[in-house]
Simulated scan of single mutants.
Amino acid sequence: MTSAPLPFTLRVADAAITDLHERLARTRLPDQAPEPPWTYGTDVGYLRGLLDHWRHGFDWRAQEAALNTFPGFRVPLHGIDLHFLHVPGEGSAPMPLLLSHGWPGSVFEFLDLIPRLTQPSKFGGDPADAFTVVAPSLPGYGLSFHPGQKRFGIEAIADCLADLMTGVLGYERFAAQGGDWGAFVSSRLGAAHKARMIGIHLNFLAVPRDPTPPENATEEERRYLNELSTFLKEETGYQWIQGTRPQTLAYGLTDSPAALAAWIAEKFRMWTDNDGTPDDAVDRDRMLANISLYWFTGCIGASFHPYYARMHGPWPIPGRVEVPAGYCQFPREIIRPPRCVAERTYADIRRWSVMPRGGHFAAMEQPDTLAEEIRAFFRPLRGR
Rank of each mutant, 00 (worst) to 15 (best):
F145L: 04
H146E: 14
H146P: 05
G148L: 10
Q149K: 05
Q149M: 09
K150V: 00
K150N: 04
K150F: 00
K150I: 00
F152D: 01
F152S: 00
G153T: 01
G153M: 01
I154S: 08
I154D: 06
I154R: 03
I154F: 12
I157F: 00
I157H: 00
A158G: 02
A158L: 05
D159E: 07
D159K: 05
D159W: 07
D159I: 00
C160G: 04
L161Y: 06
L161N: 04
A162N: 07
A162H: 13
A162V: 04
A162P: 03
D163H: 11
D163A: 10
D163E: 07
L164H: 00
L164I: 00
M165S: 02
M165I: 01
M165W: 01
T166D: 09
T166M: 04
T166G: 09
V168I: 09
G170S: 02
G170C: 03
G170A: 00
G170R: 03
G170E: 05
E172W: 12
E172P: 02
E172K: 14
E172V: 08
R173H: 13
R173L: 12
R173D: 12
R173N: 12
A175F: 05
A175H: 11
A176V: 08
Q177A: 14
Q177G: 04
Q177I: 07
G178M: 01
G178T: 06
G179C: 13
G179P: 08
G179A: 13
D180P: 14
D180K: 02
W181L: 14
W181D: 04
W181C: 02
G182F: 04
A183L: 05
A183H: 07
F184T: 06
F184C: 04
F184V: 02
V185F: 12
S186H: 09
S187P: 07
R188H: 12
G190T: 12
G190N: 15
G190L: 11
A191F: 13
A191K: 13
A191N: 10
A192C: 15
H193A: 13
K194Q: 15
A195Y: 09
R196C: 11
M197Y: 12
M197V: 15
I198L: 15
I198F: 14
I200N: 15
H201Y: 10
H201F: 10
L202W: 04
F204G: 06
L205C: 04
L205W: 02
A206I: 07
V207S: 05
V207Q: 06
P208W: 08
P208E: 05
P208G: 02
R209F: 04
R209L: 07
D210M: 01
T212W: 08
T212G: 09
T212E: 11
P213C: 08
P213T: 03
P214T: 05
E215Q: 14
E215T: 11
N216D: 02
A217L: 06
T218K: 00
T218A: 01
E219V: 10
E220L: 10
E220I: 02
E221R: 12
R222Y: 03
R222F: 06
R223A: 13
R223E: 14
R223L: 14
R223S: 09
R223W: 15
R223H: 10
L225R: 04
L225F: 09
